[in-house]
Amino acid sequence: MDTAVPASGHGEHAAASHIDEERKVRLGMLFYVLTDVTFVIFMLVAYPWLRSYNTDQGWFPFQHMRLPDQGTTVTLLLLMVVSAVFYFIGYMGIRAGNQWILRIGMLISLVLMLIALVGQIRFMGSQQFSTGDGTFADTWLLFSGYHIYHLLWATFLGLGVTHRAFRGRYTKEKHLGVVTIGYFWYWAALTPILIFILMTALPPKL
């Protein structure tokens, strides 16, 4: 392998000259989210799989068992969607150079995320069924648990990005953190929609 003249000078300046830092960070975050997407897909596979086999009628063993309340499910889902919308508004704000739109957008999206987190935990704990009550109950609790993990992670990231927004750490030119955390935020909002579609498209009771 032949090498010719050096590309540039020493240290981080040399790196900056030929490496697109923004592309690097975006790509890294996208790949990270992609690995989470694959995890969710493999988890979701369990639902139609176990439902279709319904081994020993164990999918939904108690016909009198109450299903999770649809109204609460939709409310929690909408909270996530609206949170993602406010996140996007905040992002558009900083893209236009408006610090206040960023701050308000991030704050509202974080608060909504926190409400969704608390609501999801309460919702999970208030079901009539628990683990060991058939595979529908098990998969529902699995998805809820993983969703809570998503919400916890998103809350941590949201705290950081909101705090930094209020400290003026993002500018019109430099707001990569808002962009990349947004990838996870939107994915965390999309996941319950996917779960909802799956559980609606395939009604739990056989």
């Binding site: 319904n54 164990g58 063993p61 683990t131 060991g132 058939g134 529908f136 998969t139 699995l142």
Partner: peptide, 18 residues
């Protein structure tokens, strides 16, 4: 839970379905 076992001796008779 009973993702993989057909019967687990869970909370009720008939629970399982793995």
């Amino acid at each position: 839970t009973s993702f993989f076992a057909a019967s687990t001796g869970g909370n009720a008779v008939g629970a399982g379905g793995g």
